[in-house]
Nucleic acid binder design. Structure first.
Lengths: 227, 227
DNA sequence: ATACATACGCGTAATATTTACGCAAATATA
DNA sequence: TATATTTGCGTAAATATTACGCGTATGTAT
């Protein structure tokens, strides 16, 4: 038992993990709760922060425990503190988001039931996680102007039409294919691989890699990814 | 005494209140601590969140108690959770920022010793508040592209050179006076007052008000304040 | 008063960027 | 082999950015 002179809230972390593929579009990784409250409802992976770890560490630990996934970089985007957001006791949660290559997470494997859901088909979630998702999506839209989110979500080798489809999915707009291509090329963040994939469809597009070094240079000089 | 099966951190809120005037530039509102730890050091107004209030409410309450100031809108920008950030016990803090007209806060009055400090002359702060300030400044620079921060910091009636000086102070760059003016005018967010102030200096510039209604319209259609 | 230094406001030409879209080449399918 | 579809290149028109000239208003010095 731990005693305090004044009541303290419990503190949890939750991770909104975004993934993307052409078929399902933008997706999030959810786990099904095994216990009450909200038993059998889907929720973001997360759990109670330990007293001797900071929130970042706790978020990574819970993510690993519940999904087997080790995120490269997670970013805190909000802390949710509504008084009644947990029926058990006062609990506040620190929310993180991460962008991952969907292939690198094997949902529904070992750990519990982790599954990808397209953001357009997310079921009603536990706690206030619906609200957390809404805020996360807003932040993602903002971040796309500063961070190379497209490259973090796509496989290492990708085509321009794929990249464009991702931007359109996140921002909810349509671009002219030729203008998108030339704008992207001019940024210098794309490296042609030379290879061509044995894709389906009509004419086979060229493939590219992300030029991370060039991005770091541009970041230093405070530029923006304008789309 | 309150008992928990697992240890819980204490939770505080802190408010980074930004103000601005031409003489001191961008400033923050600080209060001097009366008790240990960090007794007599300056810190952001804030304190322990109550168990039956959410963090926003707690932040506003503490701000009022310590500075007598009622903020119109505060926005959460980060939660700081380093394990050793408070020497007493495990404390995490939810940080808020607000932009206010300096005239509306009478620093150093009733409540404790609240005083404005230019951001360029902030003394070493209590806890990890130096770090909190650094993050707040970064967010302010980002937000200036989406929010009319200039208008929130200036008096209701202001001149174009004043607005320009504020933008330059926050972003740390210089603009051409004529280009800045025409760009601002084209946005349609400025309403000339017709009056001219009994200012000092050379030629007296025109005064303007912020067109809040026009801003709301533009915000709907997802624009950006580009400077 | 008058001259001078300084700051404001208008306007404009040169350059760069954005936008819309034509057209030929590549490829799966019929 | 014909057809429909998609990629990649190029370009003209519209728009935005940038640099800066010039006249006017105003406080200060003489």
């Amino acid at each position: 038992m731990y005693n305090y002179k004044y009541p303290h809230p419990a503190v949890t972390t939750d991770c909104v993990i975004f993934g993307y593929d052409i078929r399902e579009g933008l997706s999030v990784l959810l786990v099904q709760r095994g216990i009450d409250p909200f038993k059998s409802r889907w929720a973001f992976p997360g759990g109670f922060m330990k007293i001797d770890e900071d929130a970042d560490t706790g978020a990574r630990r819970e993510l690993m425990e519940e999904t087997g996934f080790e995120a490269e970089s997670i970013s805190q985007f909000g802390t949710f503190t509504a008084v009644d957001r947990d029926p058990r006791e006062r609990v506040i949660t620190i929310a993180y988001m991460a962008l991952v290559r969907k292939g690198s997470v094997q949902g529904g494997d070992d750990a519990a039931d982790a599954r990808w859901f397209p953001v357009s088909a997310v079921p009603p979630l536990a706690f206030d996680h619906d609200r957390i998702l809404r805020i996360a999506l807003e932040r993602l839209k903002e971040q796309i102007h500063f961070r190379p989110v497209g490259f973090e979500l796509l496989p290492e080798v990708f085509t321009l039409p794929q990249l464009q489809a991702l931007y359109e999915a996140i921002l909810g707009v349509r671009f002219d294919r030729r203008n998108f291509a030339s704008k992207m090329q001019k940024l210098g963040l794309l490296v042609p691989t030379g290879e061509r994939p044995a894709d389906a469809a009509r004419r086979i597009p060229q493939t590219y890699r992300f030029n991370a070094q060039k991005y770091d240079e541009l970041k230093q000089s405070g530029f923006r990814l304008e789309f």
